[in-house]
Design a binder for these strands. Structure first.
Lengths: 202, 202
DNA sequence: GAAAAACTTGCGCCGACTGAAAACTTTCGC
DNA sequence: GCGAAAGTTTTCAGTCGGCGCAAGTTTTTC
């Protein structure tokens, strides 16, 4: 959490976050990221257009900046947990431990989800980020299970966990009052433990 | 399989396939799709650049044209099987029924896999296509399981199946001599039936 | 066999993105 | 503190992918 940084690095992180936020705000305002140009985002964040592109490859990347942050946190936490817990528990608890529900408020998340859902390019870029996360995490899972990253098993476990995570989050965002996020994640992961072919009764 | 079409539609399908093939050939030739321009692809397929863009949004789309074809076939088959089989079996058998190993030869598939693996944009676009496939199939799964497409269960089942499919295919392409594709798929899907937390012994 | 519908093409355009060099800011050694 | 060094931002010019449009061509329809 507490990474020692100089002023310079903190400033960079700040502008990056500012750009991400600007992208999000403008996109919601205009009802879609397509309607927003990199120039507008840069202006909103108070930097030049070129600087925007120094930080992000595309406006989609900017909007999904949060995703990277969360992914980074997940990886760090997972790496730690994998040393002491069975991998499946580590994956589940790391998902819970992100506490997405505390990081962002529900309305914002819903909004974000809608933005992504309605933009083909955003869907695609986000999907790509999941793959990145997958490839980054597969080594951890492989090592924890004593298998090779190229084997079937670690890829299946990690794939399942990422699906579980995504589906649980989506579901909770749609029905935040129904149950706390941690519980939804727990139940979703539990579904994989007993076999996917029969549903666990809600 | 045998769709009744006029001359016009067959020609369209032909040029689309030709463009896809051209993209693939040029990409392998030049060691990466980045090194290939839409103009080259169009030229290779004997049409104008503008026509290329009438068929595909991007060169990545062109290269992944096969994916769409396979996805279409999968959906059609799944829709049919879901009427008579339990959904999990339908998903597995539809995956097997594609007979990827008969449609393309192994060397080509390996080549294609490498192209995708080495190109961030290709990875991303392909990931997006999986999401498309997901959203197209989730209704089928939901109906088959008597649930709502927004529920947890159908999304988990379908997500698992797609992961299984992808992982099994990847694995088989890397080790085609080890076991026939159908068997790899069967074993991979079986992993989900007994619960993901303990590996099935190979 | 002519009119209608569908497809291809060339042209012009816009917007996203990049490279290079100049201006500026932070850092570091003394 | 101060000045050189390293890193960052900006301006500017340019490339490239992709799209709308309208004219030309092919297929379909009756």
């Amino acid at each position: 959490m507490a990474e020692q940084t100089g002023l310079r690095e903190r400033k960079k992180a700040a502008t990056k976050a500012a750009l991400g936020l600007a992208a999000f705000r403008l996109a919601t305002e205009k009802g879609g990221l397509e309607a927003v140009s990199p120039d507008e985002i840069a202006a909103e964040a108070g930097v030049s257009t070129r600087t925007f592109h120094n930080y992000f490859h595309s406006k989609e990347d900017a909007l999904l900046h949060d995703f990277n942050e969360v992914a980074r946190a997940l990886l760090a936490d997972l790496r730690e947990r994998a040393r002491h817990q069975p991998i499946w528990d580590a994956l589940r608890d790391a998902s819970i431990g992100l506490h997405i529900d505390r990081r962002f408020d529900v309305a914002t998340m819903k909004c974000r989800e809608d933005l992504v859902k309605n933009s083909p390019t955003l869907i695609t870029v986000q999907a790509g980020k999941f793959i990145e996360l997958f490839t980054a995490a597969v080594d951890i899972v492989a090592e924890a299970t004593g298998t090779d990253p190229a084997d079937l098993y670690p890829r299946l476990v990690l794939g399942s966990a990422l699906v579980a995570m995504k589906v649980a989050n989506e579901h909770w965002i749609e029905h935040p009052q129904h149950a706390p996020l941690a519980e939804v994640i727990t139940r979703t992961f539990a579904q994989f433990e007993t076999g996917i072919t029969r549903p666990i009764t809600e």
